[in-house]
Computed example of a mutant assay.
Amino acid sequence: MDFDLTDLAIVWGARVLSAGLILAAGLWFAFFLSRVVRRQALNHPHIDSTLGTFLSLVIRYAVIALVLIVVLQQFGVQTTSLVAVLGAGALAIGLALQGTLGNVAAGIILALMRPYRIGEFVEINGQEGKVTNLDLLFTELETLDDRRIFIPNGQALANPIVNFTTMGRRRCIIVVGIGYEDDIDKAIEVLREVMGDDPRTLQDPPLWFGTESLGEFSVDISARAWIATDDYLQYRADMLHRIKEAFDAEGIEIPYPHSVEISKGEIELRMPPIKPRVHPGAAANE
C-alpha cells in the first residue's frame, strides 16, 4: 500500500512538475512572441500601430490557450470536450457581440487600408474634424468647434470618407449672390482681384469663377480657389469679409429677402369703399 502511494505521489509529482515547466515556458514564449510581433509591426511602414498591438495580443492569448490545453492534458483531462465547450461559448459570445465584433473587423480593415491617419482632417459619416485617435472600436474626431466625436468603425467603413489632408490642399468654394441689375462680369472681376491677390491662394490649379444659378432674389456666382488645408478656415472667413467690403465699394448689391409690415389702419385706407349690392327685383317692387 505504501509502495502504491509512493508510486502515485511520484507520478503526480512528475505530472505537476512537467505541467509547471510547460506552463512557465509557454507563458514566456507567448509574451516573447507578442513583443516581437508588436516591435516588428511598429517598425513596418505599412502596418498601423493599432493593428500591430491588436495582432500581438491575439497571438499572445492564442499561445496561452494552447499552453493551457497542453497543461490539462498532463493531468489526463480530455480536452476534446473542453475545446467543444470553448467553441460553443465563443460562438455565443460572438453572436451577442456581433455589432462590437463588426466594429473590430472594420477597425482592422481601416488600419490595413489606411484611408486616414491620426492628425489628418477628414469627413466621416457627415462629420468633419481632425482624427485624434483610432482604435479597434472607434475613430475619434476633434471638430472645429472643439467637440469630440466618436464614430464606430463600422459606420466609418460603410460610409464615404473624405480626406482633406492627403493632397495637402483643399478647395474653398464661395457662393455669393448679386442683384439682377448688377454687372456679372464686374462682380467676377472683383472676386478675382480679392481672392487672387491673397498669398494663400494657390495658382495651380487656377482660380475658377462662373454663374452657378439664377435664384429668386439674386444671381449666384461661384468662386473656387485651392489653398493649403491648414489655411482653409481662416482663409474662408477672410474672403467673405473682403468680398463684402469690395462689393460695397463698387456699388454691387448683395440682395436678401425683405419683409414689409403693414398695419391694420393702412390696410383699411388702401381698401376701396364697398358699395352695397341691390337685388334687381327690389327696385322693380318699389
Results as ranks from 00 to 15, higher is better:
Met1Pro: 07
Asp2Trp: 08
Asp2Gly: 11
Asp4Lys: 11
Leu8Gln: 15
Ala9Met: 15
Ile10Trp: 10
Val11Ala: 13
Val11Asp: 12
Trp12Gln: 10
Leu17Val: 14
Leu17Thr: 11
Ala24Cys: 07
Gly26His: 00
Leu27His: 11
Trp28Ile: 11
Ala30Trp: 01
Leu33Ser: 09
Ser34Ile: 00
Arg35Val: 01
Gln40Pro: 08
Leu42Ile: 07
His46Ile: 15
Ile47Met: 01
Ile47Tyr: 00
Ile47Trp: 00
Ile47Val: 03
Ile47Arg: 00
Thr50Lys: 09
Leu55Tyr: 02
Leu57Lys: 11
Val58Lys: 09
Val58Ala: 08
Ile59Ser: 05
Ile59Met: 04
Tyr61Leu: 07
Tyr61Pro: 05
Ala62Thr: 10
Ile64Lys: 00
Gln73Cys: 06
Gln74Tyr: 03
Gly76Lys: 00
Val77Gln: 10
Thr79Gln: 04
Gly89Ser: 06
Gly89Thr: 07
Ala90Met: 06
Gly94Ile: 06
Leu95Val: 05
Leu97Ile: 11
Gly99Asp: 15
Asn103His: 08
Val104Gln: 07
Val104Asp: 06
Leu110Met: 06
Leu110Phe: 01
Arg117Gly: 11
Phe121Asp: 15
Phe121Trp: 14
Val122Pro: 09
Glu123Thr: 13
Asn125Phe: 13
Asn125His: 10
Gly126Glu: 06
Asn133Ser: 11
Leu134His: 08
Leu134Ile: 13
Asp135Arg: 06
Thr139Gln: 02
Thr139Pro: 05
Glu140Thr: 10
Glu140Trp: 03
Leu141Asn: 00
Glu142Met: 12
Glu142Asn: 14
Leu144Arg: 12
Leu144Phe: 12
Arg147Leu: 09
Arg147Ala: 06
Ile149Leu: 00
Phe150Asp: 15
Leu157Val: 05
Pro160Gly: 03
Pro160Ile: 00
Asn163Gly: 02
Thr165Gln: 08
Thr166Pro: 13
Arg169Leu: 13
Arg170Ile: 11
Arg170Lys: 13
Ile174Leu: 02
Ile174Val: 05
Val175Trp: 05
Val175Glu: 14
Val176Phe: 02
Tyr180Val: 04
Tyr180Glu: 08
Glu181Met: 09
Asp182Ser: 01
Asp185Glu: 10
Glu189Val: 12
Glu193Ile: 10
Thr201Ile: 03
Gln203Gly: 12
Gln203Pro: 11
Trp208Leu: 13
Phe209Leu: 02
Thr211Phe: 01
Glu212Lys: 06
Ser213Pro: 09
Gly215Trp: 00
Glu216Asn: 12
Phe217Gly: 10
Phe217Leu: 14
Asp220Phe: 05
Ser222Pro: 15
Ala228Leu: 13
Ala228Ile: 12
Thr229Lys: 03
Thr229Cys: 01
Leu233Val: 14
Met239Gln: 04
Glu245Met: 05
Ala246Gln: 02
Asp248Gln: 08
Ile252Trp: 02
Ile252Arg: 03
Glu253Ala: 08
Ile254Met: 06
Tyr256Asn: 12
Pro257Met: 01
His258Asn: 15
Ile262Met: 04
Ile262Gly: 01
Ser263Asn: 10
Ser263Lys: 07
Gly265Ile: 00
Gly265Glu: 15
Glu268Tyr: 12
Glu268Ser: 06
Leu269Gly: 11
Leu269Glu: 10
Pro272Ala: 04
Pro273Glu: 09
Lys275Trp: 11
Pro276Asp: 07
Pro280Val: 01
Ala282Thr: 14
Ala283Tyr: 10
Ala283Leu: 14
Ala284Phe: 13
Asn285Glu: 14
